[in-house]
C-alpha cells in the first residue's frame, strides 16, 4: 500500500526534475540561437540604449565573454552553465552592472511572495465556498445570474482591472495610495509604522488579485460539485434519507480534491497576472524588475528571473502533487 504512494511520489519528483531540465535547456539554447556571438549582440544593445562610456563597455564585454563561455564547445558551455546554477550563481546584470542577478532577485522576490501567496489562498477558499453555494442552488435565479458574472470576471485582463481599481479607489475616491510598496523613506522592518503603511499600500493590489481569481475557482467548484452530486454514492445516500446538508458536505469533500490539483496549475497563471498587476500599482516586486529587465534587454537578469519563476512554479506543482497523493485515498490502492 505504501509502496504505491512511494512510487507515485518518486514519479512526481522525476517529472519535476525533467520539467526543470527542459526549461534550463531552453533558457540555455535561446540566446545561443542568435547568429554570431551572443555577447556582442547583448552588449551592443546596451551601447545603443545607454551609450555608456567605452571603458565600462569593455569591462562588461569581457565579463560576459567569460560568463557565457564563448569559444568553448557547446557541451562545456552547458556544464559550466549548470555548475554556476547549482552554486546559486545567476550571473551579472547588464543594466545594473556590476550587481549580481541573485542579489537583485533577493531584493524583489519577497514582495511578490507576500502579495501572491495570501491572495491565492484567500481566493481559493472564497471561490470554493461560493462554488458549492451556487452548485447547491443550481438552476435557480442565483445560479443563472451569478455564473455568467463569474465567467466574465474570470476573463477580465488582470492589468486592466488593476488600472480600473486604481482609478476608482485611489485616484478618484482616494481611499488608498496611488501606488508604490510603502511610503518613500520608510525602511522595511517589523515596526508598527512600517507595517501599517505597507498594509495600506498592499490592500488594493491584494483585493484586485483576490476578486479576479475568485471567479475561476467558483466556476470550477460549481461544475465539480454538480458532477459529484449526480454520482451514485450521493444518490444512494439520498435514498437512505440523509439530510441534504450532509450530502452537500460529502460532495464538497470529493470536489475539493481536483481543486487542489488546480491550485498548482493556477499558480502559474496567477503569477503571470500578478507580475502585470504589480506594474500598474508600482508595487516593487518581480513584475517591476521583469519589466525593467525586458525594456533594457538585460538578458542575464531576464534569464535569472525566468529560472527563479520556473523553479517556483515547478516546486509549487510538486508540493501540490505530494499533498494530493497524501490526501487522495485512491492513490494508495491503485
Amino acid at each position: 500500500m505504501y509502496l504505491n504512494v512511494l512510487r507515485y511520489l518518486a514519479r512526481r519528483v522525476v517529472f519535476a526534475l525533467a520539467a526543470f531540465l527542459f526549461f534550463i535547456v531552453a533558457i540555455f539554447t535561446l540566446p545561443r540561437l542568435i547568429p554570431g556571438n551572443p555577447v556582442d549582440v547583448l552588449v551592443s544593445r546596451l551601447v545603443m540604449q545607454a551609450q555608456a562610456n567605452p571603458e565600462l563597455i569593455h569591462a562588461v564585454h569581457r565579463k560576459f565573454m567569460e560568463e557565457f563561455g564563448v569559444g568553448l564547445p557547446l557541451w562545456k558551455q552547458f556544464t559550466r552553465f549548470v555548475a554556476q546554477l547549482l552554486r546559486g550563481d545567476l550571473g551579472t546584470s547588464i543594466s545594473m552592472y556590476p550587481r549580481k542577478v541573485s542579489e537583485i532577485l533577493a531584493l524583489f522576490l519577497p514582495w511578490t511572495v507576500a502579495l501572491l501567496i495570501p491572495a491565492i489562498l484567500v481566493s481559493w477558499a472564497v471561490g470554493n465556498f461560493l462554488g458549492v453555494l451556487i452548485a447547491w442552488r443550481r438552476g435557480t435565479v442565483l445560479d443563472r445570474v451569478i455564473t455568467p458574472i463569474l465567467l466574465t470576471i474570470n476573463r477580465i485582463p488582470f492589468y486592466w482591472f488593476a488600472m480600473v481599481m486604481l482609478f476608482i479607489f485611489a485616484v478618484y475616491l482616494r481611499f488608498f495610495p496611488i501606488g508604490d510598496t510603502y511610503r518613500w523613506g520608510l525602511s522595511p522592518g517589523l515596526n508598527w509604522n512600517f507595517v501599517v503603511n505597507y498594509l495600506h499600500h498592499y490592500a488594493l493590489p491584494f483585493l484586485t488579485l483576490v476578486v479576479i481569481s475568485t471567479g475561476g475557482w467558483a466556476i470550477g467548484m460549481r461544475s465539480m460539485t454538480i458532477y459529484e452530486l449526480g454520482s451514485d454514492y450521493i444518490l444512494f445516500a439520498d435514498l437512505l434519507g440523509l439530510p441534504q446538508r450532509r450530502l452537500l458536505a460529502y460532495a464538497f469533500r470529493s470536489a475539493c480534491l481536483p481543486q487542489v490539483t488546480e491550485l498548482g496549475l493556477n499558480f502559474g497563471l496567477m503569477l503571470g497576472g500578478s507580475l502585470l498587476l504589480e506594474l500598474v500599482f508600482n508595487y516593487r516586486g518581480m513584475g517591476s524588475i521583469t519589466f525593467q529587465a525586458l525594456s533594457t534587454l538585460d538578458y542575464p537578469l531576464i534569464q535569472g528571473i525566468f529560472i527563479v519563476l520556473a523553479a517556483a512554479v515547478i516546486a509549487v506543482n510538486l508540493v501540490v502533487d505530494i499533498v494530493y497523493g497524501l490526501v487522495d485515498p485512491r492513490i494508495k490502492v491503485t
Partner: peptide, 22 residues
C-alpha cells in the same frame, strides 16, 4: 503527456516572453 504537462506547468506569459525577447 509528460511534454504536455511540462508546457502546461509554466505560466503562458513566461513562455511567450522568453521567446519574444529574441
Amino acid at each position: 503527456m509528460a511534454s504536455t504537462n511540462i508546457v502546461l506547468a509554466f505560466p503562458p506569459i513566461l513562455l511567450l516572453l522568453l521567446v519574444t525577447v529574441f
